[in-house]
Design a protein around this nucleic acid. Sequence first.
DNA 1: TCATACTCTAACGTTAAGGTAAAGGCGCCG
DNA 2: CGGCGCCTTTACCTTAACGTTAGAGTATGA
Lengths: 154, 154
Amino acid sequence: MVDTTHEMQIGELAQMCHITTRTLRYYEDIGLIEPLRRLEGGFRVYGPETLARIQHIQELKDLLGWSLEEVKGVIQAEDEVDNLRSQYRQSRTDQERLAVVKQATGVIESQLAMVSERLGRLDGMRGTLQAKLQRYGELEAELREQVRSQEGKL
Amino acid sequence: MVDTTHEMQIGELAQMCHITTRTLRYYEDIGLIEPLRRLEGGFRVYGPETLARIQHIQELKDLLGWSLEEVKGVIQAEDEVDNLRSQYRQSRTDQERLAVVKQATGVIESQLAMVSERLGRLDGMRGTLQAKLQRYGELEAELREQVRSQEGKL
DNA sequence: TCATACTCTAACGTTAAGGTAAAGGCGCCG
DNA sequence: CGGCGCCTTTACCTTAACGTTAGAGTATGA
């Protein structure tokens, strides 16, 4: 069960995500998120699911370097599967629901492939960095020795 | 030894890097790269080191998501260490050279830390993706079963 | 020597992802 | 009910990283 107890307004949510309210409204503009509902005055009200959603968005954006437009495609596919469980859009036939799951599976698989590829390249990068660090260490030792011998001459 | 035999002009280099000539000139503008020399007519001439340099730049940009300005800082530190070996700027004292190596070591170390952190987060992401894939697989099997039983009713 | 393909500089255009400011409502405390 | 802090929309501004076009020069094979 999702904790529906802690509702919040845009400022608090922004703080928890370490982003600005402007960014949240912008994400809403481009269809990435939506408030649970609004107060009479028009104030946006969010639940904790949105916090998780934002974090998910930031992972896709920062870790995979995707644009918000690309991110949108992915989470929309995920959303559709989530909606299969709820009564919302229960109207689909089972064949249609199967198609939705298949499509989302494809999205996740390609995402997984991308993550794996990145893991490989990052690991390669780590290797070269470690090698470079070792070379620098040796160079430093060498230079230290030279400095020492020069100090001896004083 | 670096292969100095294969010199090329901007178009060929662009093709090998899968970028445009515009991008290469832009990188030059902001001080990321420089041609080996120019022909009389002003045409840029590059060596193969530049190809490696561009690939390095793209790794930092794409894999770590750094801006070109951040990339510049890193490769400048690396350049300085490389210059220690050549007669260029041989004028430094050993203390100064030691300082350069130390600074570059710091740069590489923080780079390594960042790579490691990203590796960890990416690995976590892979885990959740695999879990999600499994759930989708189960859901798909379930739906398939429902479709089968409905076909039986026809 | 001429045509063709490549290159040069300079300058304006574009897009994503927000930043910032203005002018005005809302909610609640005292 | 007055003030204070948060929220609303609208609208213009900014920056990075190039794209694109124009107008002119260069290199080279036929």
